[in-house]
Design a protein around this nucleic acid. Structure first.
Length: 950
RNA sequence: GCUCUGGUGGUGGAAUGGUAGACACGAGGGACUUAAAAUCCCUUGCCCGCAAGGGCGUGUGGGUUCAAGUCCCACCCGGAGUACCA
């Protein structure tokens, strides 16, 4: 009987579904715990997909296949494995599509999901679909909203180093005001208990907003007019939106933000505990951008103009303070208005206006261009008492540090450029050697390195840079004008989107103060709207919703015509961003149908965390930071039990497209020249051709003629009767006709072949081009494996057969453990080739081999498993263990080296001692040529090699 | 610029410091077949040679070592991330 993959695969997919083979229980305490009560647990998670209209291409399942193999492997090893899947279903593309076509995003999303599901099902994954989550479903986003409310109701206490309830803060303020409080906040406030108690509700709420972990504030945002929404920093690249590539500008807007910066240090520290690649950790560290330095207050000359008579700067180089020759404020700095002299006023205002109106894009493009203006005001260097000019420039950013710097042009390249441009003095205060002082006016560039000695620097002169840093900080600390501090590049995450297709905020406004709707009234469901575009007045799409107001007494959503601002109030109109729903989904999978809680204590105590997480590295600075933050917060409020949610993380590499080209002659527009016959590439035009009508770079001429009407009469210059196409590795995209759809391959070769081939392509973590050319080999291998079972026998296996089996068990186990699936597939090939040569059809060998194959090619394994008379699923078989005794070799083929060069090999007994090996080598006829006289030295590695130096 | 990656046959790729190129694709030759498909066998890094055999080979140049694709130093090229972050 032939290997009929179509029939086999649908049979077992049905069987698995009908028997609930992939259903997982939560261990002890759960309703159906009897099955898995005493097994160890393991959680394998894939980053859930956004179901786009295009469906899956061959790159999407790569990670899913890898994780599925691992999940199945763990199960065979006796683990209770959680391996769920769901959909990140809220987001921009569905909404953009809705705006264009008027189709409700819920409908297109539903359609896309069922298409995804169909495609996924065909590949034979072991997902427990009973646990599916969809971020756009009320019963799921109820808990996204719930988490938001908890963030709203907590603040971050730096002393406790965790999130604490706002109610505790209110109590504290009533008793002692801000005294002794060290908390994450937007600005440091100082007030007494009397003051707090004297304030009205509005003022108190305003003050609390300064501390909430989810807070409303006017902040400069990335506004994308084309998309009609704000975007997070990681959603903007080079001043353009990641989705759509539209221009993005800076704009001050009242937005919800998450105070993720409160967790910056813990986010850095947590990286030590997780098993991720160094490069991924590095991306996160860079994104968080921790830097140590000092905060220093510089007094302003004629301090009456400034509020406190001084302003704060941040520097990582306190040791260079003797080299400060000017100060720079960012154009947004609040002090500018107060300190600018009347003579400079016009010029400064013009500059500030100009800078503020510049788009992100212009700024990015002109980074190297120096611009700025003198305020006319001066500061005093607190250590030298020198009077130094204060400038304003774009190169100082509002969002980092305090938006003000001390400029040390000799030792900072940006300050250097600025000083040169405006002819400001440059003073050397660091030198590689104590006396290596030169004239900075002759320098080509600044000396930025943190090495060498301080020079021209008062009391730190002669100290090493590192010591000088400490000495300066100690001094300013003593003087009470500064202290050691740490700054982060990470910004708070803007959490509002002016969009329709997202989670509504469970917030209503009473006198412009946000209040949370009661938790027991969640979810606050997304209302229907007449139009998905923003309203005429610029309100988000929810402004179109008629039934969108909160009745405080009835505790429910009512028609907005009832708004009276007494008992009925307007609801928040923006929605949450894409990362809201994906930040905690891994926890919900643990207990997806719980209506009482996000997830039960039992469930999270059982599963703890994700043991293996597989997904793309593109989420390094987005999802993976937000999710870690989300989890740490949930940990603080005693929900999640482990601080770091993803223990081991694997990034599957991108699968690139492999495009094919035909070459049209420029002289004759209907003539196509085969690649090898082209003399000069300038004579031809390369045209992308659909990879589905090309086989091994050979063009199917008939199908090419049918492909496009304009090619119907094409003529060809052939080589060896074939038209050979050119190829190139590019992004997989429709416009390049290089998209490979997994369904086509499943139909042609079967899911098992697809699974094996995706793994065989190369290391999972490496980017690689998709190329169908090799798929035949993998398919042939499966047929060969199938044929082994044609002569199934119960005879005892021989030594050779057992040896290859046990070698295979050992190698496959090793390979799976280190996620080296490509070499695992080769190992299977070697094993099957050997067994074919040995004509081995012995059950004793084939049965364990089938179990080894089951994670990789589950359908064929299940079929053969049952053909061997088994009645239970192969998924619950036992992973074989290798027997060291079967691996022992009697003889070793020793490579013989002379002076490190391999010359020949010699077969010897495995237990041969050095002198016997040497004797055998001397006796070998081949040695005569290389061995003249006695060897000077002999290196002998038992069972490995012998090297003779002569 | 900085950080992280990677550089091995015609192609994808393999190699705990110990026979470089496993496994597969492609290509060439052959068997079976009326023919095709399927299957099977042989050859396939480059150079010299009829052969036996020899020389050269893992981006480049040095070094460590009995032995280097693998370790160290310097450099070249590709890919990704990030970028006035003080």
């Amino acid at each position: 009987m032939d290997y009929n993959f179509g029939e086999i695969e649908s049979r077992w997919q049905n069987y698995w579904r009908e028997h609930g083979v992939y259903h997982v229980s939560n261990g002890v305490g759960s309703a159906d715990n009897h099955v898995n009560a005493d097994k160890p647990h393991y959680y394998v998670l894939d980053m859930f997909p956004y179901p786009s209209g295009a469906g899956l291409h061959v790159g999407h399942p790569l990670g899913y296949i890898a994780s599925d193999i691992y999940a199945r492997y763990k199960r065979l090893q006796g683990f209770n494995v959680l391996h769920p899947m769901g959909y990140d279903a809220y987001g921009l593309p569905a909404e953009q599509y809705a705006i264009q076509t008027g189709q409700h995003p819920a409908i297109t999303t539903e359609k896309n999901i069922s298409r995804y599901r169909e495609q996924l099902d065909k590949i034979g994954f072991s997902f427990d679909w009973d646990r599916e989550v969809r971020t756009c479903e009320p019963k799921y986003y109820k808990w996204t909203q719930w988490t938001f409310l908890q963030l709203f109701k907590h603040y971050y206490d730096n002393t406790a180093n965790k999130a604490l309830p706002i109610s505790a803060l209110v109590e504290r303020f009533a008793k002692q005001g801000s005294e002794g409080l060290d908390a994450a906040c937007t600005e440091v406030l100082t007030f007494s208990a009397e003051e707090w108690n004297s304030w009205d509700e509005a003022k108190q709420q305003q003050v609390l907003m300064n501390y909430r972990l989810a807070y409303l504030a006017d902040i400069p945002v990335n506004w994308c007019a084309e998309l009609g929404t704000v975007l997070a920093n990681d959603e903007v690249v080079n001043g353009l939106s990641v989705r759509g590539g539209y221009p993005v500008e800076r704009k001050l807007m009242r937005q919800w933000s998450l105070r993720i910066t409160a967790y910056a240090q813990r986010l850095v520290d947590g990286l030590e505990q997780v098993d991720w690649t160094d490069s991924l950790k590095e991306i996160q560290r860079n994104w968080i951008g921790r830097s140590e330095g000092a905060a220093v207050w510089f007094p302003i000359v004629d301090g009456s103009k400034g509020q406190n008579g001084s302003f704060e700067i941040f520097t990582t180089r306190p040791d260079t303070i003797f080299g400060v020759t000017f100060m720079v404020l960012c154009p947004e700095h609040e002090l500018i208005g107060q300190i600018t002299t009347p003579e400079q006023k016009a010029e400064v205002e013009a500059y500030v206006t100009w800078a503020k109106n510049r788009s992100e894009r212009e700024r990015q493009a002109e980074v190297k261009k120096v611009s700025g203006v003198f305020t006319g005001a001066y500061a005093i260097n607190p250590l030298t008492e020198e009077k130094i000019p204060i400038w304003v420039s774009e190169y100082v950013l509002a969002g980092y540090g305090t938006g003000a710097i001390m400029a040390v042009p000799a030792h900072d390249s940006r300050d250097f450029a600025f000083a040169r441009h405006f002819n400001l003095p440059i003073r050397q205060v660091v030198a590689l050697e104590k006396d290596a002082i030169s004239d900075p006016s002759t320098w080509e560039e600044s000396m930025d390195a943190k090495t060498g000695y301080s020079v021209n620097s008062g009391f730190v002169t002669g100290m090493k840079v590192k010591d000088a840093m400490k000495a300066v900080i100690d001094r300013i600390d003593e003087m009470g004008i500064g202290h050691r501090t740490v700054n982060f590049r990470l910004r708070d995450a803007i959490f509002s989107r002016q969009r329709y297709w997202g989670e509504p905020f469970p917030i209503y406004y009473k006198n412009n103060i946000p209040y949370s709707i009661p938790e027991e009234r969640l979810p606050l469901e997304l209302p229907e709207v007449s139009d998905f575009k923003p309203t005429a007045t610029g309100e988000p799409p929810l402004g179109h919703a008629q039934k969108w107001a909160w009745d405080e007494q009835k505790r429910c959503v009512v028609d907005k015509s009832l708004i009276d601002n007494k008992t009925v109030f307007p609801l928040e109109l923006s929605t949450m961003p894409g990362f809201a729903g994906s930040s905690g989904y891994y926890l919900r999978y643990m207990d997806p149908h719980n209506d009482e809680a996000y997830f039960s204590k039992d469930a999270v105590n059982y599963w703890q965390k994700v043991d293996l997480y597989v997904g793309g590295a593109e989420h390094a600075s987005g999802h993976l930071i937000y999710a870690r933050f989300w989890n740490k917060f949930l940990h603080d409020i005693d929900m999640s039990v482990v601080e770091e949610p993803f223990q081991k993380l694997i990034n599957q590499g991108m699968i690139q497209g492999r495009s094919n080209f035909v070459y049209r002659s420029k002289a004759d527009n209907s003539l196509f020249i085969s690649k090898g016959l082209i003399k000069n590439m300038d004579d031809v035009t390369a045209i992308h051709v659909d990879i589905n009508i090309v086989d091994n770079d050979v063009l199917d001429i008939e199908r090419f003629r049918q492909w496009r009407p304009e090619f119907a009469d094409a003529k060809f210059e052939l080589e060896d009767g074939k038209y050979i196409c050119g190829w190139e590795v590019e992004k997989m995209s429709k416009s390049m006709f290089n998209v490979q759809n997994p369904d086509d391959l499943v139909a042609r070769y079967g899911a098992d072949t697809l699974r094996l081939y995706e793994m065989f392509l190369g290391p999972v973590e490496q980017a690689k081009p998709w190329d169908t050319n090799g798929i035949e080999g993998v398919h042939r291998f499966l047929k060969k494996f199938w044929r082994l079972f044609e002569n199934l026998s119960d005879e005892a296996a021989g030594k050779e057969e057992l040896k290859v089996l046990h070698q295979t068990i050992k190698k496959i186990t090793d390979d799976v453990e280190r996620f080296s699936f490509n070499t695992a597939v080769s190992t299977f090939m070697i094993c099957v080739n050997t067994l074919t040569d040995l004509k081995c059809g012995k059950r004793e060998v084939l049965k364990p081999l089938t179990v080894l194959m089951a994670p990789f090619a589950p359908h064929i394994a299940e079929e053969l498993w049952h053909q061997m008379g088994e009645t239970n699923t192969v998924c619950d078989a036992e992973w074989p263990k290798y027997d060291e005794r079967q691996l022992v070799e009697d003889t070793v083929k020793y490579p013989v080296q002379f002076n490190g060069k391999m010359r020949f090999t010699i077969d010897l007994p495995a237990d041969c001692a050095q002198q016997d090996v040497l004797a055998a080598v001397k006796a070998a006829p081949e040695s005569a040529k290389w061995l003249t006289g006695e060897p000077k030295k002999v290196i002998f590695v038992p069972k490995k090699i012998i090297n003779i130096v002569c």
